[in-house]
Computed example of a mutant assay.
Amino acid sequence: MAAPHRPSWKTAWRSFYYAGAPEAPDPVLVKGKVALLVIDVQNTYLARPEDRSALPPLERAREAAWDGFHERMHGIVIPTIARLIERFRAGAGPVMFARIACLTPDGADRSLSQKKPGWNNLFLPHDSEASQVVPALAPRPGEVVVTKTTDSALTGTNLRLIFTNMGITHVVCTGIFTDQCVSSTVRSLADESFDVIVIEDACAAGTMELHTRELEIINRIYCEVMRAEDLLGYLPA
């Protein structure tokens, strides 16, 4: 008799610490107690120059380095999140969103990490087009959208209280960037004793190397990492 099929996620994305650990247990997801959280899939991160050839050589090379990210976002991540949103809206649980946006006109309310020079120097007024969730995943009226000026969606927002008030015990995390805001949110949720699931094909980092490495770091200790197809088999009807 053939051995029963075991989902590969149970032993995948293992770090040094969990190389010999037992298989992850099946999650028990109860209707009304599991929520989908979409993190920072905003217009600013999907914007690209209309004419890359007009850029100076260094900027052109830097832009080209992001090709893999954009291909993954449009080809895998956004369609996967859209599929999960549809399933949750059909009754599996609430859909919630977190986005980076400052509330003051000059961005004075931003955290230090969003003021430092470099790629993370983010100035995204809350009512700007750049700060909005991408149209393909746009929140519906009545769905919770928290605005943050930090990496973690729990820091400086009332999201933890919202989850607690709604009786949420399990949070399914998706979005960008795996190694930054997704990871920070996952760690915060775990510290607050929520059960967290990260969907591998619903997240992205600047490179696949960064994406995969971060999943290995947070898997098992802060969350369980699986793919959307795995999760769909556990969601309540």
Rank of each mutant, 00 (worst) to 15 (best):
R187M: 00
S188I: 00
S188N: 02
S188L: 00
L189R: 06
L189Y: 04
A190V: 00
A190T: 05
D191K: 15
D191E: 15
D191P: 01
E192Y: 12
S193A: 14
S193N: 14
S193I: 06
S193W: 08
S193E: 12
F194Q: 06
F194Y: 14
F194V: 01
F194D: 11
F194I: 02
D195I: 07
D195Y: 12
D195E: 13
V196Q: 13
V196C: 08
V196T: 07
V196S: 11
I197N: 07
V198E: 13
V198D: 06
I199T: 14
I199V: 15
E200V: 09
E200C: 05
D201Q: 04
D201R: 15
D201I: 15
D201P: 06
A202D: 10
A202R: 05
C203G: 12
C203A: 02
A204F: 04
A204C: 14
A205H: 05
A205G: 12
G206W: 15
G206S: 03
G206V: 13
T207V: 03
T207H: 15
T207M: 05
T207G: 06
M208D: 15
M208F: 06
M208P: 08
E209Y: 12
E209M: 08
E209P: 04
L210K: 09
L210N: 10
L210D: 10
H211Y: 11
H211F: 06
T212A: 14
T212C: 15
T212Q: 14
R213S: 07
R213A: 11
R213D: 06
R213P: 00
E214W: 04
E214M: 04
E214R: 13
L215D: 01
L215N: 02
E216P: 02
I217R: 14
I217W: 05
I217L: 13
I218A: 01
I218K: 02
I218W: 06
I218R: 02
N219S: 11
R220S: 06
R220W: 09
R220Q: 09
I221D: 03
I221L: 11
I221V: 05
Y222N: 09
C223T: 10
C223K: 13
